[in-house]
Design a protein around this nucleic acid. Sequence first.
DNA 1: CGACGATTTGAATAGGATCAATGGGAGTGG
DNA 2: CCACTCCCATTGATCCTATTCAAATCGTCG
Lengths: 233, 233
Amino acid sequence: MRPSDLPQVRALRLFDSMEDESFAALMQASYLQTFPAQLDLIHEGEPADFLYVVIEGCVELYASSNGREATMAMVHPVGSFILAAVLKDVAYLMSARTCARSKLLLIPAQNVRDALGSDDGFARAIVQELAGCYRGVVKEYKSLKLRTSVEQLANRLLRYNKERCDAHGAFELPYDKKTLASLLGMTPENLSRSFNTLKPYGVEVNGAQIKLTDVKALEALAKPHPLIDERGN
Amino acid sequence: MRPSDLPQVRALRLFDSMEDESFAALMQASYLQTFPAQLDLIHEGEPADFLYVVIEGCVELYASSNGREATMAMVHPVGSFILAAVLKDVAYLMSARTCARSKLLLIPAQNVRDALGSDDGFARAIVQELAGCYRGVVKEYKSLKLRTSVEQLANRLLRYNKERCDAHGAFELPYDKKTLASLLGMTPENLSRSFNTLKPYGVEVNGAQIKLTDVKALEALAKPHPLIDERGN
DNA sequence: CGACGATTTGAATAGGATCAATGGGAGTGG
DNA sequence: CCACTCCCATTGATCCTATTCAAATCGTCG
């Protein structure tokens, strides 16, 4: 990787408490590479050769079984994926593809494990990252088990509205509706119908542009819960 | 806790690579305690005061939202729960209750975090445990998203059959059917119907006693997948 | 302009949930 | 030892949600 890329990587939470020496060793073995959209990166069942870090762009994690496919998560900058498989030196549980042109950092798995053993600051950061990933999945799992499709969509819209709301009080869906549907555990047709169901609650849809004109009403329906919907912690 | 309990705790994977000194410090602050069945241990949203380790018995992790409740996981000896919340020093995402008389080890959260920083062997064990928990949830999440109720039940029965099959080629359900239903993401009524659906595939049910008389046929229906159904790794 | 993919809409179906009622032990008290 | 009770499990009937299949529409890109 190019020396000019180092500072931005160094600043990532995963690496900022690392010792200079071990960071240098890790980076010397790594690749910072830009991939086009819709490129398959890894496939479930393969041995975990690299730890991936999304620097720019977006990566979709998905899983398949028996002819069906489901989106498991979307990874944005700055997030890692398949950390657990790398640490345990076992096969990936999920597949990954880029959903946009993306700059990714690929760190050889063995080097990650070496650094984990030799650098306490890195070990602590790994633990925090892993614990964060774990809690993220638990939240998704809770949401899927405890909510109907419409409730899931409503809560997701409220979340995006908080995170992305622009000057006009509107926001743009971060993924196409097909992907969003899969992420929420429903079919595209059903997502479309769910949007219609939410129209009386002040959800205005124009393509990917969404405007919430009655957040109170939508919240009354969605009943957002901090232990499911709040990111971080 | 009693000195006589120490060896069995020391033998747990989570502690066996720990230094004597830090293990002693951790245990000196901990409690090994037996709880009756059906006792509420923790509730989601509470701050993470203790790390729990199940030594004997069984603990149900569940979550609630908006009047609904769902079983998230069952923890058996020797497994920990709510490790991530302890490490991040944030609120529990799940509630826990004993489902049988259970012997639990309670380790104060602050001591766990201290030991994590001061004992490399413990840090490595924590990382492995956490990574294992993470992959466990991902598998459950995959199963829920990719399979119908009947398929989930079929795969679960195949798993129990491998793990618990006795001399007569039968096994006993590890939990009552109500709990099993919630764990599989369905209602008790639906579980009952799913068992009926599986009768033509050689699933004989007598109360909690299950006998699989045609594993091939059941596997053909269930299509078990190592990246979902195999425990460990 | 034409083609393709994404989205929406409609109709029919299937899968699961809910409500209600019945059977079946396990435990309790007589 | 036997009734009684309670809770779990099963069954039936109905309702609701979501999936599937089909077709129309929209928008974008050559």
